[in-house]
């Protein structure tokens, strides 16, 4: 399956690249099999994710997933973010080849780690 135009656009013009110096939470996860890496930093305003940034090393879908995830996250509440699935990311990118599912999995894993960190801070 070839990559979609949406996917290519995310790769050519990635959204929300970088790190937030004032981030409330930062999470970084690595895929131990292929070495892909995703770093996510989030700023919160009350319940709302007010800003999201990403850095990524790895194959093209890992970069695109980081881009589309941060795009989705901004403006969401913590609970809404917790409901994002691999399928949501894949759909938002116009589909991913089956063997690239690991990229969406890494993005969701990193998001979950960030949410756990938020919960920890709150408790």
């Amino acid at each position: 399956m070839p990559y979609s135009e949406t996917f290519k656009d995310h790769l050519a013009h990635p959204r929300h690249v970088g790190e937030l110096p004032e981030a409330d939470v930062v999470a970084e996860e690595t895929n131990p099999v292929c070495g892909d890496r995703l770093r996510l930093s989030l700023c919160l305003k009350g319940e709302l994710i007010s800003a999201a940034r990403f850095l990524a090393y790895g194959c093209a879908p890992t970069l695109a997933c980081g881009s589309v995830l941060t795009e989705m996250l901004e403006g969401m509440t913590r609970d809404e973010a917790a409901h994002i699935t691999r399928a949501d990311l894949t759909r938002a990118l116009g589909g991913l080849p089956a063997r690239k599912g690991h990229a969406a999995a890494l993005a969701i894993e990193t998001l979950r780690a960030a949410l756990v960190e938020i919960d920890k801070q709150r408790s």
Partner: peptide
């Protein structure tokens, strides 16, 4: 260094 070939390949292809 620091980047992965496939992302560069697709960027160049675009």
């Amino acid at each position: 260094r620091y980047i992965e070939g496939e992302g560069l390949l697709i960027n160049l292809d675009l």
